[in-house]
């Protein structure tokens, strides 16, 4: 393998890409949109209606009465502590409820722990270990430390990683279609193949011309994305979530592996089609397993952690090795001139 020949091929392809407005739009606009517009759109909802995480000051320190193991029906209560009580049709404020069942009750500025709410409404209160049925919780905070909204936000930020893996998957479909199918349509492959270069030097040179701008676009766009995400959600989470190990593995290991997969797959596709758009459409299908993986993760089947990401990296690497082998078999002088359609 002579790197100088490889680089000559890569430089020529890069020069051609610079003159192709479709390729340039794709390389510049797609990462820019995904890095800036996407987080703003998706995270605005969380910023505008941030889930509360701090316990509310409900002012129920001044408990003046305690009711234990009783059934309480009707009545309005203030500054009262209920322990193991059955409450029905009760209006309560500045109260504490522990191990109690509340049915058809209206509660505000209170604390409810390890209790059940049936057909009731809870306003501006703290709670933990609460089981609800047909009830409304408004402006209230789970003080157990487990906040479903926060957990969802964390998972959602991990889910956005899919778009950063999509960049190096989708961009090569655009670039490879021009690089391989375009060169085939232009009939410029024959004089190229007549030069004293090996098949692998030509293939890797062309692949490098796609890989380098795709990964540069991905990594450069990761910078504004990180800044925007951290700026938007650090107030909610109390810390800057990016970069974290999941994203580091995703952007710096999985994304390049998917990029290689996409390039090699497009080489194979290029041998079968004679149309740039058909090549792009078929090449885009490589994102499908990726989308399924992330949607399954978002649905909560598994949590996107470093271990899962490393497992995914290993799986993609194995697929890459197989596809590299097939693309090298496809990109041979004889095959290109005799078998490529």
């Amino acid at each position: 393998m002579r790197l100088d020949k490889l680089w000559v091929v890569a430089k020529k392809d890069l020069a051609e890409f610079r003159t192709n407005k479709y390729v340039m739009y794709s390389i510049l606009l797609m990462p820019l949109m995904l890095a800036t517009v996407l987080p703003v759109i998706y995270l605005s909802a969380f910023v505008m209606m941030p889930p509360a995480t701090q316990a509310l000051d409900v002012g129920n320190e001044g408990i003046s009465m305690e009711i234990i193991d009783q059934v309480v029906v009707n009545g309005t209560y203030e500054d009262t502590s209920f322990l193991r009580c059955e409450l029905r049709d009760v209006v309560a404020s500045n109260c504490r409820f522990e191990a109690s069942n509340l049915t058809n009750c209206l509660v505000r500025d209170s604390y409810i722990g390890n209790s059940t709410l049936n057909g009731s409404a809870l306003f501006h209160s703290n709670y933990q270990g609460l089981t609800t049925s047909g009830s409304t919780l408004s402006g209230s905070v789970d003080v157990s430390g487990v906040n479903e909204d926060i957990e969802f936000l964390k998972q959602f930020i991990s889910f956005l990683l899919i778009f950063f893996i999509m960049i190096p998957v989708v961009l090569p479909t655009v670039m490879a279609s021009y690089s391989f199918v375009g060169e085939k349509l232009n009939r410029s492959l024959e004089p190229l193949l007549a030069t004293p270069t090996t098949d692998s030097e030509l293939l890797l040179g062309k692949a490098a011309a796609i890989f380098i701008p795709c990964m540069l676009a991905t990594w450069l766009s990761f910078i504004p994305f990180t800044i925007i995400v951290d700026f938007m959600v650090s107030g909610i989470l109390g810390y800057a979530p990016l970069p974290d190990p999941v994203w580091i593995i995703g952007v710096f290991i999985i994304a390049p592996l998917f990029c290689i997969m996409s390039i090699c797959l497009n080489v194979i596709i290029s041998s079968k089609v004679n149309d740039v758009r058909a090549s792009q459409q078929l090449g885009s299908l490589v994102v499908l397993p990726l989308v399924v993986f992330f949607i399954v993760a978002l649905a909560g089947v598994f949590t996107l952690g470093p271990e899962i990401m490393l497992l995914l990296s290993g799986a993609v690497l194995l697929v890459d090795l197989a596809i590299i082998y097939f693309s090298l078999k496809t990109f041979q002088r004889e095959s290109i001139l005799v078998r490529w359609k």
């Binding site: 020529k12 020069a15 051609e16 003159t19 192709n20 232009n186 009939r187 410029s188 492959l189 024959e190 004089p191 190229l192 007549a194």
Partner: peptide, 13 residues
Amino acid sequence: GLLPEIPGLYETL
């Protein structure tokens, strides 16, 4: 040196 039937040049360069 080879001159193929179709020149096959890089048209944008």
